[in-house]
Write a protein that binds this DNA or RNA. Sequence first.
DNA 1: GATGAATGAGATTTCATTCAT
DNA 2: TATGAATGAAATCTCATTCAT
Lengths: 199, 199, 199, 199
Amino acid sequence: MQSGTRTFIEEARRSQIVACAIEVIATLGYANASLSRIAKLAKVSTGVISYHFGGKDELIQAVVAEVAGIATELMTPRIVSQATAADALRVYIEANLEFMRLHPKPLLALVEIVTHSRASDGGPGPYAAQHEIAIADLEKVLAWGRRTGEFRDFDLRTMALAIRGAIDAVPAQIAIFPDLDIDHLARELTVLFTLATRK
Amino acid sequence: MQSGTRTFIEEARRSQIVACAIEVIATLGYANASLSRIAKLAKVSTGVISYHFGGKDELIQAVVAEVAGIATELMTPRIVSQATAADALRVYIEANLEFMRLHPKPLLALVEIVTHSRASDGGPGPYAAQHEIAIADLEKVLAWGRRTGEFRDFDLRTMALAIRGAIDAVPAQIAIFPDLDIDHLARELTVLFTLATRK
Amino acid sequence: MQSGTRTFIEEARRSQIVACAIEVIATLGYANASLSRIAKLAKVSTGVISYHFGGKDELIQAVVAEVAGIATELMTPRIVSQATAADALRVYIEANLEFMRLHPKPLLALVEIVTHSRASDGGPGPYAAQHEIAIADLEKVLAWGRRTGEFRDFDLRTMALAIRGAIDAVPAQIAIFPDLDIDHLARELTVLFTLATRK
Amino acid sequence: MQSGTRTFIEEARRSQIVACAIEVIATLGYANASLSRIAKLAKVSTGVISYHFGGKDELIQAVVAEVAGIATELMTPRIVSQATAADALRVYIEANLEFMRLHPKPLLALVEIVTHSRASDGGPGPYAAQHEIAIADLEKVLAWGRRTGEFRDFDLRTMALAIRGAIDAVPAQIAIFPDLDIDHLARELTVLFTLATRK
DNA sequence: GATGAATGAGATTTCATTCAT
DNA sequence: TATGAATGAAATCTCATTCAT
């Protein structure tokens, strides 16, 4: 169903449910996020979720789209407005971690979903694509720096995996140590990957 | 029960079941790894698993112990025998990725377990400790380099998280792209973190 | 959940399931009363029971509450309206046995639950409290007679245990000998305990 | 298999297992007394129990026979050696409670079995016969007193049920209140039933 | 649109029993 | 005789989904 075809109420319900799904996934983990628990938090019957989303897969997909959308929206402008690729990479890392600091749950939920989801036959799972998109976006920044000669001659994909790997490890740390100093982490990571990428 | 008190047959069965558990977890993912599927692969009834391991938790614990044991055994000597911390770090990364290349499934299973385990109330889960151990081990190598003056003045834990984050991202990539050139990946990562850590 | 917050249909289902649980427990015994059998008699799936009661414990608790409630409601007014404690004791026994004659299964189920419940570590079990309540209620009647001087100087608790022991032995007899003359039994027991308690 | 055809070792094993079964039943309750737990306490494999007893039913039967045998052996002489039926009844109660005080577990186990056992179709269960025997034995004492004119004109079976019901309620009380003053209980019960039976 | 009710599958665990050694 | 290993059934519980109202 296209977004344009939905009524205002329909959209409101969807948003509410997605928000509760984020809360539950971030709090209890992807494996413990059943429709019952999400419905209970939303003070809604489980049937509503199936009604609005067709099924759990679609709800999760909506969560991914929502969070990725917000994240992209918030972060992309800051990144692409930088004058140099090195600045863009630095801001990429800072923006990701700032987002975690400001809205830890959406990003924690997103990482939970993206890293945990697997099809029942073991295949990549329906949300692996999102991860691939994130990697690809990051590769673009790195390719920019390579093109301009700011960055040394590294493998784009490997570097992108390492950067995302480091960033994606953070939410789990936050879950364990809620008082984690994220700004400190951001500074350390920017220095780390600046040194790792510069010529 | 101590290992010494177990029969030869008991040990054989346990090993077989652990091997099947690794296979299933690596292939289908932690969330899809039910006792039924593990038992089916092992061509035994599910009761056998409870008989030999008491329960699922203990089986998973056995998998963790097995793989972590092998990995430590194979990697630690190579790492500690290095003359410099920089070499040790390089070998740490190389050894991890070589292990993935030689035995992709055990390490994929281990990473699945360690990163996915969460208590039903959302708490850290019983295997988070293993991750903490891995981080701590890595911190020791980094601390060594800091002590000898080989490494620059970075935050030990952040650097350890980044390195493990990058390494832990690899199994998922292998699952999606089985033909991944792991040696290439290893070379890139060693260069990356050498530049990131050196003075 | 308060009774008032439940739907009419919800209440009907609960009542039906409780009734089936009583039937099964009374007919097959507490140990043989599985959710499957109760569900089968109710012609619903086992999940329905968990849905309405959360779990087996809660269902059993509901049975206890239901039967104890009915029994108390039917018997207490008759007992307390007596002029003397001796009459009250006589009516206590008569009312209990009449209840057994009119509704043998609920009381048989109650006695099965109350006398058979044990925690898995051998502890008193969650329904032992109900037995204690029954004993305490009986002790009150006995204390009344002691206060008024109608009764001799016996130990309250021992007498209460003996009376309840005698009454609680009846359902099992009914199960074995369905044609048991309960009125005859009631007359004999009232005489017995009248002689045992009077001054 | 007749007792006479069993070897000494065979008998020793059976006794040991029966003793452990008593311990487990008395401690954990009939419902929680699995062969595994009995075997574990006996430091023996579960197969041994099936080997020596054919199955669980036969083991329980052996427990019943053993305890009932001991109890009868210890109590019957004391009872029948009394000069009057009133004394015999008094000694019957005293002997039962003294047995509980000296060897609480065997009798607790016996009562657990006799009162809890039910066939899977809800029928009387294979050990109800033992209860019937106990009732019948008690009826003989009561009949004696009726014959001699010591006792009033009560219904034999009802009185027997009441007495056994009172006695059988004691083990459960001991389980809940281990410090119960059994001698006190015995004195109270003998007075109670003396008054209830005398002319 | 929304709800509560119900289903049926699947998960883990425990149990009595059997069997090869 | 005895053991440890294995089975298969049964039990409880949870889940995603469907459906009548």
